[in-house]
Nucleic acid binder design. Structure first.
Lengths: 246, 246
DNA sequence: CGGGGGTTTGATACTAATCAATAGATGTGG
DNA sequence: CCACATCTATTGATTAGTATCAAACCCCCG
């Protein structure tokens, strides 16, 4: 676990030893998609693929921001800490998510694997050179940053003005949507994170999150076959809550 | 008030009728700075300068996102609404701030002037063409988006995990720093927004904000010559609070 | 099968919201 | 320039929603 794997390692999963990027499962979901075919070899040369065990830290707040990171599989949490240890999870990231845009010269957040993760590392400075040759990539990075900005502002609205029930409803609806890709099928949602991590994301405590799950269950809005699976049984109700209708 | 002013209007303030951008007071603080001298005429041709009265809406959430906006003078608030009317102010923007990055095809937030404002409007589609000729501008836009992302994540931390006192301390410290430019001198801070707007920014109520001001005042951390002026008298204390030290 | 983290549920405490009233500031028109 | 109307701010009393403290339960994993 946590073994360093050179590009060849990714190739095992992707089927080609020399051009990991060309066959990368995450590419269709990622900014890498903006790199034209003929530049993929260059990209591959910059990429270092590694596996991380659950709990491993991929990026540490305050460290020099040397790399970008791209999640190939698994899920990570992005979080910030207060000096007394309070934690706020700013988001979760899965396949294709590009990390490291919101950065000064040092990282302003930490990243930790919440389940086994494979991720790809690029040197920031070397990627910059690729960007110069490849305006579509810069365009795509800007697009990605703007998308993240929209998401961050939604989270600000949630934390500033929504009740516990509205927060959890928003989270479940949002996660079930993004999950079209990998996380969930229709109304069946897989939650790789713990109740505590959901709490740290929604600005609540673990007890409040648990109680709110119980209440949704009792009211027939969801079923929970296991604590990491949720079936949405009254989506319209949760969506109304999420939108903040009274 | 709120009179529409063509580019000539800005020139009155800037001293030249044909190249408003060349003499724009906000340019040194703005992304426009990335546009090279020789392209300034092109930029000027795209820009439409207008004045807005306090309370006027510059951008309405849900409307087609046709323009970017650049604040030349005054202060605006950016906010989102829930369906029942609860408001969350995601930020305030002053001289040089570029608005409209966090956008899909429609605006995902509203913008309103909280004091008289002069701002500059660019068509998104026409600015895109300028970007093609001017890679430094795209670079700068990406930089700006990333900077905003960092700010947004700080706000998420604040709303998710800080107490009322910590929130107000963070706000005052932050505003006094950014204000180096225009808002404040050293520890003397001008607050163009009302208590209610501060509350809607910090996820609190107007009463809690007012009480927290009173407490800081009673404890000798600040003085308030008027309700829109604050003198920070114990910056170290406020900074410790803002960092969340116990 | 035993241990330990994660989850649920209950009782109580506390922070901030709400409701309410007064005081102060701002702006307008006579 | 003053008086009035309105908006904004402050302060007090009470309530509501979550946090905190505590205990039991469940489940997953070794």
């Amino acid at each position: 676990m946590g073994t360093s794997v050179r590009t060849g390692g990714a190739a095992m999963q992707s089927g080609n030893g020399r051009e990991p990027c060309a066959y990368c499962h995450a590419r269709p979901y990622s900014v890498c998609n903006a790199v034209p075919e003929e530049a993929l070899a260059t990209l591959s040369a910059l990429a270092v693929v590694r596996d991380y065990a659950k709990g491993q830290v991929l990026i540490e707040q305050g460290a020099a921001a040397e790399d970008f990171l791209n999640v190939i599989s698994g899920t990570v949490k992005l979080y910030k800490l207060l000096t007394d240890g309070r934690q706020q999870i700013t988001g979760f990231a899965g396949t294709g998510q590009f990390l490291g845009l919101a950065v000064t010269d040092t990282y302003t957040f930490s990243v930790q694997a919440i389940e086994p993760v494979r991720a790809c590392r690029f040197s920031r400075s070397r990627l910059r050179q690729l960007v110069v040759d490849c305006p579509q990539l810069e365009e795509r990075l800007l697009q990605t940053a703007c998308q993240e900005l929209v998401t961050a502002q939604e989270q600000i609205l949630l934390l500033g003005r929504k009740s516990a029930q509205e927060r959890l409803a928003t989270f479940l609806i949002g996660w079930s949507r993004q999950g079209g890709r990998r996380v969930s099928v229709a109304d069946h949602v897989r939650l790789p994170m713990t109740r505590g991590e959901i709490a740290d994301h929604l600005g609540l405590t673990i007890e409040t999150v648990s109680r709110t799950f119980s209440r949704f269950r009792a009211d027939g809005r969801i079923r929970t076959p296991s604590s990491h699976e949720v079936v949405i049984t009254d989506r319209a109700y949760l969506e109304r809550l999420a939108a903040g209708a009274g």
